[in-house]
Design a protein around this nucleic acid. Structure first.
Length: 417
DNA sequence: TCTGGGGTCCTAGGACCC
DNA sequence: TCTGGGGTCCTAGGACCC
């Protein structure tokens, strides 16, 4: 069995703040989200006081003051920098590293045999010595079990090994369902409906029943808890599947012009982020919501998707699409609290070329159908994707299969067929 | 008055096609 | 014009994670 280690930085943002301000050591520290909205990190001392993750700052100010809690605004540049240092150190301990988040990484640790726990302690000591960041390490045959092991490592002495069934059973007996990676409130309720209320019950449940009543995600989780790996290490950074830019507003927005400006800005920022990754998009989604915390107010959440005939990385086009999308979503008299832009269907920008032509009103004739069938027969269904918007219909012939460019030229498609 | 932002994966339901 | 089954694709929304 190949052991997987999960290395997790303890209270990462709070620990980062402490590196540069030693006076914060031993004191309750919390880090706040953008706009100082709510708590996103807590030191152990802050947790001990009972400060909850996500606690809204404006409702907690007085409590914090009473307990002498030190409050910091978040500094993502700093956290990103320290994260890179930690990851670089981890990479010297194994060739198999998956950076899972800013403060966590999975490590493949095969080949250490009995020395694995000592190796984990080395990793821990080195990271602490070279960066000042304390980490916890959980080791097990699967990622889900490694996550559980990590939780116990945090309660104990920093390293927890769950390589045998006995150790796993004993560990799972100490955890709640919601301690597991992937189970939160909703899933807990759904599982309770089929009489599963503990991690051990979940592990030992009939997978068919799980699949039917709780879905494939939970089915896989049960297998992972048994030591059967359903998710390997992702050592190569996968291409992004979506890029988002969204914000909550400081106060409710009711003017259309204001919302339009915000969405234009988000579209531009998302496009810039996309270009940095050498990607292009043909699908832009816009969403708006009211304030869900004001239960007495009328709620409105909506999103809509615009499909462009061709993938683009052009800000102007995306801003225009976002504006069109807003026109669909806009309702007078709504108090908007949050809005955002999501870019989907990302493709490598270098494969998309601009020389395209779109028929303004292509009829869905019999010829079109026949041509489609022929093209599908020759190149397979995957080679063609239909991009349609209203009455406009265009065909894109994928670059890698047929030619080096996308085309929407109807006559050219007929020639190919 | 003040409750984050950026992601992934899955599923239900409708549109559309043969 | 009606009937209908089987299948795919798309969209919106849910749930979860850090």
């Amino acid at each position: 069995m190949r052991p997987v280690a999960l290395v997790d930085c303890n209270n990462f943002y709070a620990s980062c703040e402490r590196l540069f301000q030693p006076r914060l050591r031993g004191k309750p520290v919390v880090v706040l989200s953008n706009n100082d909205g709510c708590v996103i990190a807590r030191s152990n001392e802050a947790k001990a006081i009972g400060i909850a993750m996500g606690a809204p700052w404006h409702l907690s100010k007085e409590t914090f003051k009473r307990h002498g809690v030190i409050v910091r605004s978040s500094n993502y540049t700093l956290y990103g920098d320290i994260s890179r240092r930690v990851m670089r150190i981890l990479s010297t301990f194994t060739p198999h590293l998956e950076i899972y988040s800013i403060d966590e990484a999975f490590l493949g640790l095969e080949g250490f045999g009995d020395r694995i726990e000592g190796h984990a302690r080395d990793i821990r000591r080195t990271v602490l010595q070279w960066t000042g960041i304390p980490v916890s390490i959980g080791i097990a045959p699967t990622k889900t079990l490694a996550k559980a092991a990590n939780r116990l490592a945090k309660r104990g002495n920093g390293v927890s090994l769950l390589m045998t069934t006995d150790a796993q059973s004993e560990a799972l007996a100490q955890l709640k369902l919601t301690d597991l990676w992937g189970v939160a409130g909703r899933m807990e309720k759904r599982l309770a409906a089929i009489d599963i209320t503990s991690p051990l019950q979940l592990r030992d449940a009939d997978v068919h029943v799980l699949r039917q009543h709780a879905g494939v995600v939970i089915e896989r989780m049960a297998l992972e808890l048994r030591g059967i790996s359903c998710a390997g290490l992702l050592e190569l950074v996968p291409q992004a599947k979506s890029i988002m830019c969204s914000r909550s507003f400081g106060r409710a927005v009711t003017a259309r012009r204001e919302l339009e400006e915000a969405l234009s800005t988000y579209a531009e920022r998302a496009a810039a982020k996309m270009r940095r990754q050498d990607l292009a998009t043909s699908t832009i989604q816009v969403f708006v919501t009211t304030n869900p915390f004001k239960a007495q107010e009328t709620q409105y959440t909506a999103s809509t998707t615009i499909t462009l005939p061709v993938a683009t990385a052009n800000s102007t086009k995306l801003v225009k699409a976002a504006t069109t999308a807003l026109a669909r979503l806009w309702r007078d008299g709504v108090r908007y609290k949050k809005a955002g832009v999501v870019l989907l269907d990302l493709v490598d920008a270098r494969t998309v070329q601009a020389d395209l032509w779109t028929s303004p009103d292509l009829p869905r004739s019999l010829r079109l159908m026949q041509a489609m069938d022929k093209l599908n027969a020759v190149y397979g269904r995957e080679t063609l994707s239909l991009a349609s918007s209203g009455r406009k219909v265009a065909w894109a012939l994928r670059a890698e299969k047929r030619s080096l460019r996308y085309t929407t030229d109807w006559n050219e498609l007929l020639r190919v067929a």
